[in-house]
C-alpha cells in the first residue's frame, strides 16, 4: 500500500481546497468529496485483502459465516456514514451530519437484527 501516494495526494488537495474555498466553497467541497472517494478506491483492494484474511481466520476456527458477514457489513456502514457525516460537517451542515449518523445507526441495527434475535432467544432459555 503506497501510503506516500495517499499522504502526498491528500496534502496537495488540502492546499488546493484552502485556496479554492475563498473563491468557490461549493467546488472546494466537491473536490474534498472526490478526494475521499479516490482514497477509498485506492484502499479497496487492500480492504478486501484484509476482509479475506479475517474470513479465513473465521473458517479456521469453524465460526458461522452469516455472523461474520453481519460484522463486516456493520463496519462498512460505519465507514460510509462517518465519511458522509464528516464531509457535511466540513460544509458547516452539522444537523445533516447528525442525521447521517442516525441513519447509519439504524442501518446497523437492521443488519444486526438476526444477532439480536438470537441473543434474546439465548437469554430467554437462561431464564426458563
Amino acid at each position: 500500500m503506497n501510503i506516500f501516494l495517499i499522504a502526498g495526494l491528500a496534502m496537495i488537495y488540502a492546499v488546493a481546497i484552502i485556496a479554492l474555498k475563498e473563491r468557490s466553497p461549493e467546488y472546494a467541497l466537491v473536490m474534498s468529496i472526490a478526494l475521499c472517494c479516490i482514497i477509498f478506491l485506492i484502499c479497496i483492494p487492500w480492504i478486501s485483502k484484509l476482509v479475506g484474511e479475517i474470513k479465513f481466520l473465521f473458517e479456521r476456527v469453524n465460526l458461522p459465516y452469516e455472523y461474520s458477514d453481519i460484522i463486516f457489513k456493520c463496519i462498512g456502514i460505519s465507514l460510509i456514514s462517518q465519511t458522509a457525516s464528516d464531509n457535511c460537517k466540513d460544509a458547516g451542515q452539522n444537523a445533516l451530519a447528525s442525521k447521517i449518523e442516525s441513519a447509519g445507526k439504524i442501518a446497523i441495527g437492521i443488519i444486526a437484527l438476526p444477532l439480536f434475535d438470537k441473543v434474546i432467544n439465548l437469554i430467554c432459555t437462561l431464564f426458563m
Partner: peptide, 14 residues
Amino acid sequence: FDISDEIEHVFGAV
C-alpha cells in the same frame, strides 16, 4: 477509522 462515539457504541452492542 476514527468513527464517531455513537456509531462505535452501536457497533459495540453488535
